[in-house]
């Protein structure tokens, strides 16, 4: 429970940070709540820890317009607490999910980008970014690139982000008509999600449109729930209860991959509770969307 020896650098610019990360034994440090416990357990033994804390440019939340769509751009080093304080409109599910991360102390240190980059399979934020159709912006020695949220994580603590790249920001499309929400069953021992479900949808002409529903804690990577999404399209927003419940019942249909389990929560239990938390997330998202129907951006 004491970290191994390593070097430490605290670059004050993105370029300097990328230089430091070019060393193959270097790892980036943001909020530290994923990395530091792993260092303490000596599960990771980097040569250099590159503290990103000096990169002020990667902090902050702003509205941007790109390609004619409005998006919320969240600097990767924005802490969970700072995002919640900013309370931006149009990202309900992301705010719900962020408020569930760890606890108050952890949210004060933990960052949105760090949460995504760590790719913990039961972390809350990735469900929301997937449901929102967010884009991650990466920068590396060969320049910038963008990755859709659904293509970022490739496994338990594995992503497409190479060792010499950094996530700089995440951009979330804003749709003033949409409503979103996140609901989770807290894992009794880890405090992460046993399962967490983010939902985002719109109401058009009194019916559910464009539903996107994503779960974490279920597989090694965040996953959309295609059967739920399909069943939600066109649901009467005026009397949705049975239809939403019916859609949620199909949560495990079409899921591709081994469901996670541990000695506390089995795969079977995760699948069994998934509909309940899907229903909660979808119902809450729908209630919010109904409130916004007809509001002009």
């Amino acid at each position: 429970m004491f970290p191994p020896q390593f070097d430490y650098e605290r670059p004050d610019s993105l370029d300097a940070a990328l230089d430091a990360l070019a060393d193959e034994d270097a790892v980036p440090l943001a909020g530290g709540h994923d990395l530091v416990p792993m260092l303490k357990a000596r599960e990771r033994t980097p040569g250099t820890v590159v503290d990103l804390g000096g990169l002020a440019a990667l902090r902050g939340v702003e509205r941007v317009v790109a390609d004619g769509t409005e998006r919320l751009s969240i600097g990767a080093l924005t802490t969970d607490a700072a995002l919640l304080d900013a309370d931006p409109a149009g990202v309900d599910a992301l705010l719900d999910a962020t408020s569930e991360v760890g606890d108050a102390q952890i949210r004060n240190r933990g960052t949105v980008g760090g949460n995504l980059a760590a790719a913990h399979p039961a972390s809350d934020i990735p469900a929301a970014t997937l449901a929102a159709g967010a884009t991650l912006h990466l920068v590396g020695p060969d320049g910038d690139r963008t990755v859709p949220a659904g293509e970022f994580a490739t496994g338990d603590h594995e992503t497409v982000c190479t060792d010499d790249e950094l996530v700089t920001r995440v951009s979330v499309p804003l749709d003033p008509d949409a409503g979103g929400a996140y609901a989770r069953k807290t894992h009794p021992s880890t405090g992460y999600a046993a399962v967490g479900v983010a939902a985002r949808l719109r109401v058009v002409d009194g019916a559910v449109a464009d539903p996107r529903v994503a779960a974490v804690g279920l597989l090694d990577v965040p996953t959309r729930l295609p059967a739920v999404e399909g069943a939600l399209v066109g649901v009467d927003a005026g009397s949705p209860v049975d239809a939403v419940a019916g859609a949620a019942e199909r949560a495990t249909e079409g899921i591709d991959g081994a469901v996670r389990e541990d000695h506390v929560v089995s795969a079977g239990q995760r699948c069994a509770v998934l509909p309940e938390y899907t229903e909660r997330a979808v119902s809450a998202a729908l209630a919010r969307a109904v409130g916004r129907e007809g509001v002009v951006a």
Partner: peptide, 8 residues
């Protein structure tokens, strides 16, 4: 259940 994160 060898850490507090594994013991409920």
């Amino acid at each position: 259940a060898s850490t507090m994160l594994d013991y409920a």
